[in-house]
Design a binder for these strands. Structure first.
Lengths: 107, 107
DNA sequence: ATTTATTATCGTAATATTGCGATATTAAGA
DNA sequence: TCTTAATATCGCAATATTACGATAATAAAT
């Protein structure tokens, strides 16, 4: 096997899990942290900063874009990424809501 | 390849990522949610409740135990799991701290 | 138009994860 | 003690993820 049985879970559970999953890689954490240290947006200084190949960084950026946590803008030859603050806050809230709701009936 | 290069990231990044990763599966989300709906602790009604084999559920429970989010107590023949509320709150805080710190210098 | 720099995508190899049946292990009950 | 019930662990097959080199795509600069 190796397939997650998404059919047996509801949409909320699948979405929440997918969001957690994407944050579940140190490179993606590092990317988000590095982007946030640049007061302006950044491009692929990420490749220099983090010790991964350009293709790999690009792949991770794609994942982060997929859930809307970052957005990219073309800036001449290069690409300027920054955190999508609305989505960021939205996800933080979703996540807190999960934490708060779930712990309610704890023994 | 297929190996996450943990060496190039710091401990905080790796720990945070691992925590997110474990929450990044719908079955584990569902398990946590179901545990919390039981006012007392629960055992493996999880196997009936969630449509996965006993071996699979047991494996997921192991992962959740590994990061301390749940704890199990022997109760006769069966096992009584419940959320570790201290660890739960601790992780929620860690996570919020990541969200708040990271978004600070956003463009 | 050609070159150069930057980023995205493709293809592939290595490893990890998911799920399950089969088999321990443990403890209660007959 | 023998059976029964509940859970954990092992071993495997299927699929997913990670990483990277090679290559395509895009846009500035010459």
């Amino acid at each position: 096997m190796g397939v997650t049985k998404t059919q047996i879970f509801d949409q909320q559970q699948n979405e929440l899990a997918q969001f957690f999953k994407i944050l579940g890689h140190p490179a993606r954490i590092a990317i988000l942290q590095f982007i946030s240290t640049q007061d302006s947006c950044i491009c692929n200084d990420l490749v220099d900063e983090i010790g991964l190949a350009q293709a790999t960084i690009s792949q991770h950026l794609k994942e982060l874009k997929r859930i809307g946590l970052i957005q990219g803008e073309i800036e001449g030859k290069s690409m300027c990424y920054c955190i999508n603050i609305n989505r960021w806050n939205e996800l933080q809230q979703t996540l807190n809501s999960f934490f708060n709701t779930t712990k309610q009936n704890c023994c």
